[in-house]
Computed example of a mutant assay.
Amino acid sequence: MSDINELLSNLPHRYPFILVDRIIAFKKFTFLNAIKNISINEPYFQGHFPQNPIYPGVLLLESMIQTSVLLLYKSINNKKLKKNIFYYLTGIDKVRFKKPAFPGDQIMIESNLEKQKNSLIFFNNTAKINNKIICQSKIICMKILK
């Protein structure tokens, strides 16, 4: 559904901190599904762990956060408005890691907008490999106008 150029136009992050590779499904202000491909060439595998490389859990959470923020930025059509809105992480709840991710895996990340209360936005996220859940989380972001 999307390529890296669309991701870059909707996320403030840049290399080496883009942790989502492709958007595959989207419904405005409702949900966004994305893919993260895990490659052995990524620099963190040099130290996490060289004999048994595992995608770091904190980076998996960051991939989920970026998917949630992509949902918000992609839902806003006004490019001028996009430049003045920032979303900052304010909380992560109910994180459960069920299985690790390894080089060669493709992670499907599902982000669902649960609710918005004032400037806070709440998401339910699930990460899967081969349709099996590897992580679940609830993420809270704050909308800031600059």
Rank of each mutant, 00 (worst) to 15 (best):
T30H: 15
I129Y: 12
K36M: 01
N125P: 08
I85E: 05
M108F: 14
L120Q: 03
L70S: 09
K99N: 13
K82E: 08
S75P: 03
Q116S: 15
K27G: 09
H48N: 07
L71M: 01
F97L: 11
R14L: 04
A25E: 06
L120E: 07
K94F: 04
F31Q: 08
P43W: 03
L70P: 08
I40G: 06
F122L: 10
H48P: 02
I144H: 10
N41D: 08
L89A: 05
N33R: 10
P12Q: 04
L71N: 09
T126V: 12
T90K: 11
S68K: 05
I85P: 09
Q46R: 10
I54N: 06
T30E: 13
N5G: 07
K128C: 11
F26K: 11
K146V: 01
L70K: 06
L32N: 06
F17I: 01
Q136H: 04
I35M: 10
Q51C: 02
Y87V: 03
V20D: 01
N130F: 10
L72I: 13
P103D: 01
N33A: 06
P100G: 09
F122I: 04
K74N: 13
K83G: 12
F122H: 15
K117V: 15
I35L: 15
S68E: 07
S119W: 07
F17E: 00
I18F: 12
P50V: 06
P53W: 07
F86I: 15
K36L: 03
F26G: 13
Y44E: 00
N52E: 14
I18G: 08
I129K: 07
